[in-house]
Amino acid sequence: MPAMPEVGPPTPFPKPAPLSVLARVSIVLGVVAALGVGSLVAWGISQSGKFATVEAGKCLYLTDEAGGGQSYTTTSCSSNRATFRIDDVRPGSAACRDSDYVQFELYGSSSRKRAEKTLCLALNVDSGDCLRDVVHETRIAKVRCTDISAEARAIVRLGPSEDACQSDDTELHYTGPPERTVCLRPTGENI
């Protein structure tokens, strides 16, 4: 049998020179700066819908906040999350033109006690859309009509529509623009 070559202990790698104090401080400051910038960017992206301009024609959805307040987030009107459309923006605390609107007041800073604007919100639905939680502004949502939680199906009629809805429907009239009537027909076997 051939003899095995003798293997000695491995040769150690030379130890790198220690980093200078200036290099260590630079590395720590670089990591802190990168984390800070990353956090600011992430926060800005998450808050971008809340600081978007509110104007007639834009869409949004409402959410509950701690302490009983509500907040809004703007979104594309074609999004399923867009449950409300802004039909009018009024200065201060003002009534909307029709009582079927959801009135949402905006305050400039937390220390102010008076509203700067009032948003007049109409349901953002098309004929055939189905909804759940229709009586709760922050939980209302569009769902598939086959979903067991679907409570109502929307029927939208443009213009002033007298007797547009059936007797079991909830009728909502929005002066717009465009002027329209939304009939919320209870779901059932006829869907």
Rank of each mutant, 00 (worst) to 15 (best):
V125R: 04
L184G: 05
A3Q: 12
E151N: 01
T75C: 11
H173K: 04
L123C: 03
S46L: 10
V143Y: 04
S26C: 09
R90I: 00
K113M: 12
T53Y: 06
V25F: 03
P160R: 14
P91W: 03
S99I: 13
S20I: 00
L172N: 06
R132M: 00
L40I: 02
G36Q: 02
P5T: 04
C77M: 05
N190T: 14
V89M: 03
L40D: 00
L106F: 10
F104A: 07
S46C: 00
L131T: 10
A141S: 11
T175N: 10
C120F: 08
V41M: 13
P14M: 02
C96A: 03
A164Y: 02
I148W: 03
S26E: 04
A154I: 01
D100S: 15
P177N: 13
I155Q: 09
R153I: 08
L35W: 04
S20W: 07
S26R: 12
P2A: 14
N124K: 00
P12H: 11
V25G: 11
C120S: 08
V7F: 09
R85P: 03
E137D: 14
P186R: 03
F104D: 02
V21H: 00
R180F: 08
R90E: 14
T187M: 06
L19D: 15
R112S: 15
Q47P: 00
P178Q: 07
K142C: 02
G57E: 12
S111Q: 10
G159E: 06
S48F: 04
G44E: 05
P12T: 07
I45D: 13
R85M: 13
G128Q: 07
L22F: 08
E105S: 11
P14C: 02
G176E: 13
E6Q: 11
V182R: 01
D147P: 00
P178N: 08
L40H: 05
S71N: 11
H173C: 04
V54L: 08
G36V: 01
V135P: 02
A94C: 06
L131H: 03
F51T: 12
L35N: 02
I86N: 02
S76V: 03
D147Y: 00
E151S: 05
R153S: 12
D87E: 14
Q47A: 13
R153H: 02
V134P: 01
L29K: 09
A94S: 15
A150W: 01
P5D: 14
G30N: 05
T11C: 09
L172T: 04
V37A: 15
K58A: 10
A66C: 02
C130W: 02
T118F: 01
